[in-house]
Amino acid sequence: MTSYPVFIIDVSSRQPVEAELLDTIGERQLLDWQFQWRRTLEGYLRRLADNGVTRQGLDWPQSWHWDWRAKIDEVRGLLGHTGYSVVCRDVTQGMMRLDLASRMARIDDQMGKPLVYVDYLEIAPWNWNEPYADPPLYRGIGQVLIRTAIQRSFDEGFHGRVGLHSLPQAVTFYERCGFINLGTNPNECRGLLPYF
């Protein structure tokens, strides 16, 4: 495992703090995810319920909220996949899994060329910038991870090409990063997640 020194921003002090980029999603990350992330998420969901946000009209996978073991096994990795995580103050702040083998570019002038596909990217719930959530603790984790994906793409000889399906709440993030929004496809991600 290799660790790269990186910086993320402590939101309360607005100052950069040292963090580590690890080229793995290890057992430690999965435990942080299963217990610490979920606890914060639970508090957030309670707050939503307290604010009258109700249960109908779910638009994410039903298995998401309980089948953590399957989710862990899936993130743990497949051949041709690699994982990265950002750790700060001994807690996992964000994770990403890359598919280096099976995806091709879709924009016209690069059609069919290999790219690095981000098949999973998530940051810890205490870093979310969402209605009803507490202000995030850290910012800039997504930036570190996306830069990692781009760097990895260069290393693989893919000239920095990166593709991903964005969560609805992350669309402006990727647009600001300079990604091109190719819209949703009814045959992918239940037609809910736009491809960049």
Binding site: L41, L48, V53, P61, G94, P131, G142, S166, L167
Partner: peptide, 15 residues
């Protein structure tokens, strides 16, 4: 103004 996230595995409630 937004929260990064990608891939259906990371899906979460959209508020």
């Amino acid at each position: 103004t937004s929260t990064p996230g990608a891939g259906p595995l990371s899906a979460r409630p959209h508020v």
